[in-house]
Nucleic acid binder design. Sequence first.
DNA 1: CCGGATCCGATGTGATACTG
DNA 2: CAGTATCACATCGGATCCGG
Lengths: 102, 102
Amino acid sequence: MERFLLLLDGPWATLIVRELLQGPRRFSELRDALEGISAHTLTHRLRRFEAHGIVTRTVYAEIPPRVVYELTPLGESLRDILYAMAAWGQSVTNQQLMAATD
Amino acid sequence: MERFLLLLDGPWATLIVRELLQGPRRFSELRDALEGISAHTLTHRLRRFEAHGIVTRTVYAEIPPRVVYELTPLGESLRDILYAMAAWGQSVTNQQLMAATD
DNA sequence: CCGGATCCGATGTGATACTG
DNA sequence: CAGTATCACATCGGATCCGG
């Protein structure tokens, strides 16, 4: 089975990558942008991304500390997938999905 | 949060849709093509797809019984996403992924 | 500010046995 | 052939408390 599918597993994973596609982000910036995500989940997704080589984690030893996450070229290459997802979401109205979901 | 992400949740969901993109498939054809999937899981994914309107289920009351699954136009519209995923998987060598995963 | 530790619930998946 | 029922396990995610 293909590994790459596991990278975007879970509802938050794709949303985090989508946010990082817009540029480097601090931990708190991600948490604020992804309204509703817990620090617990955000940390775990970022750690996995890091382990899979699609995100870099840079720690600035300042007071207060600052941690910046940034997509690697490998992570940037996910852009086409995210774009395809975004396009699909726009072409399918919420009404269609809601009616089909219930 | 966007509903469509939940459609392709889990490692098998995308693979099932990818198989159906090649044409209608019987239950046993899907199970054979997706080596390693359990009947339990395949049934549950197909039932969800059906409920979400991306797959139709047609039962032929023959002996032995025959059940054919086919993508709806809504399901077909997922093609671009699956293609983008496939392209990504091909551009990234397995070596890269394995090295990054461990 | 950026998490780690821990406990908990929900869900995806498998194994096995069984059925119309 | 095409499932269903049940049990078991892993992982995603949230809540809460605590630490560098």
